[in-house]
Amino acid sequence: MKVIFLKDVKGKGKKGEIKNVPDGYARNFLFKKGLAIEATPANLKELE
């Protein structure tokens, strides 16, 4: 799953980066803790 990092996550990504991460990791950790959001076309446009 492609995500946009909202905060730095040690060993995974830095704020503003767009990366592919495992689906479970994104849903169960990154999204729940507010560390990242899904890289949807709308979210990507908002980032620019």
Rank of each mutant, 00 (worst) to 15 (best):
K15Q: 10
K45Q: 12
A42M: 10
K12M: 15
E38I: 07
T40M: 05
I37P: 00
L44Q: 07
R27V: 12
G24E: 14
K33Q: 12
I18S: 03
E38T: 05
K32W: 07
L47I: 13
R27I: 14
T40E: 05
K33G: 08
K10S: 10
N20D: 14
E38F: 04
V9Q: 01
L30Q: 00
R27S: 07
F5L: 07
L44A: 06
F5S: 01
V9P: 00
L30I: 01
L30R: 01
E17H: 03
G16L: 05
N20I: 15
D8S: 09
N28Q: 10
E46Y: 11
G16W: 10
I4P: 00
E48Y: 12
D8P: 05
I18D: 01
T40R: 05
V9K: 02
L47A: 09
P22Y: 07
I37Y: 05
L35H: 04
N28A: 12
L47Q: 11
L6V: 09
E46M: 10
A26I: 08
E46Q: 13
K14Q: 10
G24L: 13
D8E: 08
K10Y: 14
K32G: 06
A42R: 10
K15H: 08
L47G: 07
N43W: 07
K33M: 15
E17Q: 11
P22H: 09
R27F: 11
E38P: 14
Y25A: 06
I4G: 00
P41L: 12
T40Q: 04
V9D: 01
P22I: 07
L44D: 05
K12L: 15
R27W: 12
D8A: 07
V3T: 01
N20L: 15
E38L: 13
N28H: 13
V21I: 09
V9G: 01
F5D: 00
E17D: 13
K33Y: 15
V9T: 03
A39T: 02
I4F: 08
K19S: 07
R27N: 09
V9F: 04
L47V: 11
N28P: 01
V3E: 00
K19N: 04
G11T: 06
L47P: 05
K14N: 10
D23V: 15
M1Y: 06
N20Q: 13
F29W: 11
K33T: 10
A39M: 07
N20K: 12
F29D: 07
